[in-house]
Amino acid sequence: MTPVTTQHTPRTSSVSLRRLGQSLELRMFGLALLIAIVLSALSPHFLSANNLMNLLDQSVVIGIVAIGMTFVILTGGIDLSVGSVAGLTGVILGLALQEFSIPVAIGLAIIAGAGIGLFSGVLIAYFGLAAFVVTLGVMAIGRSLAYIFSGQTSISSIPFELSDLVFTTVLGVPTNVICLVALYILAGLYLSYTKGGRTIYAVGSNKEAARTAGLSVLFYSILPYVISGALAAVAVTFLTAQILSVDPLTGNLLELDAIAAVVIGGASLYGGRGSILGTLIGVVIMVMIRNGLNLLGVSPFWQGSAIGAIIILALLIESLLSRRTRS
């Protein structure tokens, strides 16, 4: 019937997808280096210790949110609500700080974030609704509740002790940066070396095959949204510690930065492909561009265009390169 094909010779010699993924991360790391070199050449302030610290600080919020986004995107989903969940949980944190101790208040905010994620996740994974639409709805609800709970104003009576989270240093490294790195290591280990992590990849790559192999598709489709919501609350906690004030508008458009970082990091929006290391590089690229444009004095109105153009360009080049490697 069918012609006898060559039996077990892979068509491309020993180029595994994982290696291809690594080389993709390598390429993105190269891009990050290139941007750093260009910026340091253009602006003498770029490499100053002050600015580097600044860069790290700015990375914390996007970076933490992007971890959750990576989990979600790996399953083939998307979470548009992280920005407004950050806003809402920020307001909850601000209000809770008026009543409770700092750890309790932070705990409440994280639980609230996780709860919102659970809500979205159940609607998406159990009821089969489109992730884009569900999280779009949650985004609107979250922002609206943030305004209502805060009474439409910012909450500035944040206890000063909260800023210890940011200004305490260990061996000269601020705690928020340590926390960021720790979260990245944890997430990376989880995704590579645990049953849950591999299940998340399998679900995103081929949900039916994962189900047929006996994996808990439902649980691991919901979990990423819970993680994403909880991490949005963690991120806003660090932000609040930095500026000691909560605004209901906090986290506006944060989801777009996070999605862009994940995608620049090589993740596929169809799921199954991507890595935590890639996301970290994506975050650094995003933050550097923003920071660099500020340093260069580019008008804030032009910054959006510049960032958008760089994102599209990076993805286009990547797509062209990977097409060549695969064929």
Binding site: S16, R18, S205, N206, A209, T212
Partner: peptide, 14 residues
């Protein structure tokens, strides 16, 4: 399963 592309293979896995 009958359709290995749909129900068998996880394409992004080694």
């Amino acid at each position: 399963a009958e359709d290995r592309r749909v129900q068998g293979i996880v394409p992004d896995f080694s």
